[in-house]
Write a protein that binds this DNA or RNA. Sequence first.
DNA 1: GCCAACGTTGGC
DNA 2: GCCAACGTTGGC
Length: 149
Amino acid sequence: MNYWLFKSEPNEFSIDDLANVEFEFWDGIRNYQARNFMRDEVKKGDKVLFYHSNCKDVGVVGIAKVVSGAKPDPTQFDPECKYFDAKSDPENPRWYGVDVAFVKKITPTISLSQLKTNPKLAEFQLVKRGNRLSILPVTKAYWDIILKH
DNA sequence: GCCAACGTTGGC
DNA sequence: GCCAACGTTGGC
């Protein structure tokens, strides 16, 4: 089993939104590195740190789990959708996603500043400057350090 | 294949 | 809202 961190802007889709649904298809990934993780490495049963970005309280707000394998992201074929990609071929889709389900909320939020001040996490991709990847692999060691605080 | 211009991400 | 960092685009 693998561990991940998924970023979401809470005004788009928050941990509370996830708590209110049976599961949610994680759409809108439009970065090739994140796509490669989604398509090739994120597996059913993997665990996910749910991270709120671009908001007042930035940080890890909960845990989710992956409940499906990779599936083509239907929004890439929807001209009405902001995630529409005219260059994606339905025979060979560019963008993928997985279903994720709520596991639990973490309160209080584990803030980014907390993570940044933990010397054990100094090499964790999330706290590196310029990090913009919306899906990050998390090692078991980092997972444990982040949740045991 | 280089690289400048542009758009996006995301913390603050 | 600002701005640094980064990815993508497109001309050459």
